[in-house]
Nucleic acid binder design. Structure first.
Length: 470
RNA sequence: GCUCGCAUAGUGUAGUGGCCCAUCAUGAAGCCCUCUCGAGGCUUCGACCCGGGUUCAAAUCCCGGUGCGAGCACCA
């Protein structure tokens, strides 16, 4: 029989491979600063699966680097709160790698004892030669006992110093992929850790720490960027040595947002400390704090990433896509207000009520605003001409009222009668443009998202308006 | 250089051999709406990277090419 199948479009995220029972996922940022837009993909994807499949979401702080990207003590707390804000629920469990060091040491010693790891005392440059030449470094020949001895020297203050020794996982120096050849698992760092100080000297690198912790936590699925594909391959080799089973792994491709180029957490941290930015929620920054401050709803961010999905394709998305999701979240509750930039005074000539009531939203019940007219309105200089004052009357360019009802198709403009001076800050990439103008009097408290008619959505802040988006 | 990955309209996606002269969203253009450059409704435009192969049949499988991206850190 010829059966006509329905063409059904898949909605939401693709089905997760593997077993759907007892799913354990993790989101593992480096707490060297609060979360950024870039982190939000991993968080949304992992938490959405965890929620859909009634699984667990682990928030894990990968804070084992005290040198290149040292942890920021305040970020641990901030990130936990940001996770709850974005996901709508808190992480089921929080793991801090720097509290779990004894486990990493224990498995490192096991690896050394069982002969699938060794202490390498070559310099990074020297080892590069071996890696490129597919030849073994002499350190690889050490017996387990000798390795343990060197390991103890790594852990001792008067033993090896940073850069003088690392622990490597034995793979195969002839592996076609150079990235996998006897990769480094632990190294010496003497900078004190901001959370726990100088308790440890030998710290694991990501590939080792993450692999061990995923096993310890029974993580079932790892969903991460495809830049970590070789990390998966390295970790699988380690899992073979330990005879563990590696989780299902899914990748996403690189995302470029045109409006947010060139920010790194370390750089932002430096710039904030130097006063270039006012803080982590400076309107020009691509952080989650900034997006929250700017009135971007967590649901909008979630819908945005879910729509993009999990393809391994590298993409470039305009922020307009995120904004369109946000518009649908905020429009129904955003009262309308008029904000007139570059105002020009117009004296109304003709009959008109001295008091008008105007709806705060064209379709939603957001109440009405009462406006007292004393014969003068302000419109934007650019709008000057024969226009219709929205919800009021048609006028000619000298202010003569030609009709109360709309009489023709002349342009509709917004206007302010008894406004107050205000300013609107507009983030434009790394710049912040400020527009002065007259804002209609209103009763809305700080934090309200309003729609400035014909301009865009804005949030009311203590000292002015901040544009959400158009 | 070595290794790995990806390739559908301007953008983002659906699609795992016949439902596909290809889905949905967004965009652009035009129209509608007692009245925003908002929201809503309608119409139109617009794509399977290239070349071979397998097959009765390929966007879908295989090979080659090209393009783009990533890893080869004592960062994550």
């Amino acid at each position: 029989m010829l059966e006509k199948k329905e063409h059904v479009r898949r909605e939401g995220l693709p089905e997760l491979p593997g077993d759907h029972k007892g799913v354990v996922l993790r989101f593992a940022p480096n707490p060297n600063g609060p979360l950024s837009f870039g982190h939000s993909r991993g968080l949304v994807v992992n938490s959405t699966y965890a929620k859909q499949l009634s699984g667990k979401l682990i928030l894990r702080f990968d804070d084992t680097d005290t040198t290149v990207k040292p942890p920021l003590v305040s970020a641990y707390d901030t990130i936990a709160k940001e996770v709850e804000w974005l996901c709508g629920f808190p992480a089921d469990k929080i793991i801090i790698a720097s509290d779990r060091m004894e486990f990493y040491h224990q498995f490192a010693e096991q690896a050394l004892n069982e002969g699938f790891a060794y202490v390498c005392t070559c310099t990074a440059e020297a080892f590069r030669e071996f890696r490129v030449g597919k030849t073994c470094c002499p350190c690889r020949e050490r017996e387990a006992e000798e390795n343990i001895q060197h390991w103890q020297e790594m852990n001792s203050e008067d033993g090896y110093q940073p850069g003088q020794a690392v622990v490597r996982i034995k793979t195969d120096m002839t592996l076609p992929n150079p990235a996998l050849r006897d990769w480094p698992a632990l190294r010496i760092q003497t900078n004190p850790h901001p959370r726990i100080g100088n308790v440890w000297r030998v710290w694991p690198l990501l590939d080792f720490q993450s692999a061990v912790e995923d096993h310890l936590q029974n993580v079932t699925h790892i969903i991460r960027g495809k830049d970590l594909m070789d990390s998966t391959r390295k970790q699988k080799l380690l899992y073979q040595h330990f005879a563990w089973q590696y989780p299902e792994t899914i990748y996403w491709g690189r995302v470029k947002v045109h409006e947010f180029g060139g920010f790194s957490t370390s750089q932002m941290r430096k710039d904030i400390e130097e006063g270039i930015y006012s803080g982590w929620d400076d309107p020009r920054l691509p952080t989650l704090s900034t997006l929250a401050r700017r009135g971007i709803k967590p649901e909008a961010l979630r819908n945005f990433w879910i729509e993009i999905g999990l393809s391994q394709k590298d993409i470039a998305v305009p922020l307009a896509t995120l904004y369109s999701h946000n518009t649908s979240m905020i429009d129904a509750t955003a009262p309308r207000l008029a904000f007139v930039r570059n105002p020009i005074r117009i004296e109304l000539k003709g009959e008109i009520d001295s008091e008008v009531m105007i709806r705060s939203h064209p379709t939603e019940e957001l109440g009405e605003r009462k406006i007292n007219l004393d014969g003068v309105v302000y419109i934007e200089t650019e709008d000057h001409g024969d226009v219709r004052l929205k919800d009021l009357c048609d006028i000619s360019s000298n202010g003569t009222i030609t009709s109360i009802d709309r009489s023709d198709s002349r342009p509709i403009v917004h206007w302010v009668a008894n406004g107050k001076e205000n300013r609107l800050s507009i983030p434009e990439g790394k710049e912040l443009r400020v527009e002065e103008g007259l804002l209609e009097s209103h009763p809305h408290p700080i934090g309200t998202i309003v729609q400035l008619e014909r301009i865009g959505y804005a949030i009311i802040e203590e000292d002015g308006l901040l544009l959400v988006h158009e």
